[in-house]
Design a protein around this nucleic acid. Structure first.
Lengths: 215, 215
DNA sequence: AAGTGTATTTATGTATACAATTATACTGAT
DNA sequence: ATCAGTATAATTGTATACATAAATACACTT
């Protein structure tokens, strides 16, 4: 499912790339870009770049002004708000997923979890982050609700920059994988209440770990 | 604040117009559009139209395919999910607003409420809807959190099509204005707990009224 | 030296021409 | 009649030229 063999448009590639560069902190807050700078850097015309920029603007990751493109990114305060919201609704998405997930989707979720568990003892932070992130994304999708997906995905993505320290902390990485395992088993057993409960606890733990650090 | 004397770009005007036409139900679900049809209908070039369409696609209101542009809109199931989420987080936004709102912002909120109260006995559904909607939007903004604003605004906007019947029902319109008044007084008194409580109750009532109708 | 008005530069906004992909219609064979 | 293959048409994707508006630099006045 969603194998995406189709060719992805330049605009989408650029959007993904710029979004990642902003969320990862490569572009600093208040940094000023211009379309022409991106044209020369990326080697494509303004059209797909503009499309990507407008999508980023809609996510409030940049602000397009007459002076140029101002990088906004995600602040520490944003982060607190994000976790407050996720604590309240991400559990519901897990419950919905537990109640309606198919065997095929379950297999996909299991594989993602096992990949995360594979990389944790190997301390491969990059891969851990990828599969940790994908685990949440799959649950959003398997909730079957595009409203929940559209609401949670942007919130989840925006934590990215701050998740780095989290996955590089070994004890937290181990604990996080265990929590994912618990959520997965609850979903696999189609136990909605338990899936919800474990998910909320997981978000609370992640929030405690990430927010504690200050900035 | 946000008087917007500046000229608005064509792309933004078209986005607002198309978004409204989809959310109001003017364009039916599964209806097929093309860029060229919009070019001839709206009398502008493809560029601003494409920008608007890409923003609509990001909000999942349309799907852009090779066959053309498929209108998605908002389903009854979406609506149930939307109210479930709003019940859980919109109260927090009200509490935040109560705790930090300025006198100037308060005056703005009061004026919006009084306009709603002005039009309710006159049974002017269009105006009631505008100020009802603006009341919620202002609270999102005055929460001071762009995360809450960005999360709640799209959810709120998507109820639009279904709110029509609501504001045209006189008893519900009267009741809704009363509930807004209660929320406003709590915010004006900087009573966060009460603002949160009243807001949650208001969302629950709105959900009961709108979801009850089926579709 | 400070401020104002103006010219210039630089940025995004828009229109249009061209490319590439995909859906569709049509023709022919079985 | 049905299906496969192919040609055609219609669609979105991309590049570029032009328009417009704002920020900046600079000269001039006081």
């Amino acid at each position: 499912m969603e194998m995406d063999h189709r060719t992805v448009s330049l605009a989408e590639q650029i959007f993904d790339r710029l979004e990642n560069e902003i969320l990862s902190g490569y572009y600093q807050r208040d940094e000023l870009l211009t379309e022409m700078k991106l044209v020369t850097d990326l080697g494509v015309s303004r059209t797909p770049i503009r499309e990507a920029l407008h999508r980023l603007e809609q996510e409030h990751l940049i602000d397009i002004t007459q002076k140029g493109i101002v990088v906004l990114g995600v602040t520490q305060k944003d982060l607190a708000d994000i976790f407050e919201i996720r604590e309240r609704i991400e559990g519901i998405a897990s419950r919905m997923a537990a109640e309606r997930i198919t065997d095929e989707q379950l297999a996909q979720l299991r594989e993602t979890l096992e990949l995360q568990e594979f990389y944790v003892p190997r301390k491969d932070a990059d891969h851990i982050k990828i599969y940790d992130s994908q685990f949440h994304k799959l649950i959003y999708r398997f909730s079957g609700s595009s409203v929940y997906y559209d609401t949670l995905m942007p919130l989840h993505k925006k934590v990215q920059k701050y998740r780095k320290a989290s996955v590089e902390n070994e004890s937290r990485a181990v604990q996080s994988a265990k929590e994912h395992r618990g959520i997965f088993e609850a979903i696999a057993a189609h136990d909605g209440a338990k899936a919800e409960q474990y998910t909320v606890a997981h978000i609370v733990n992640a929030a405690n770990h990430i927010l504690k650090r200050g900035n």
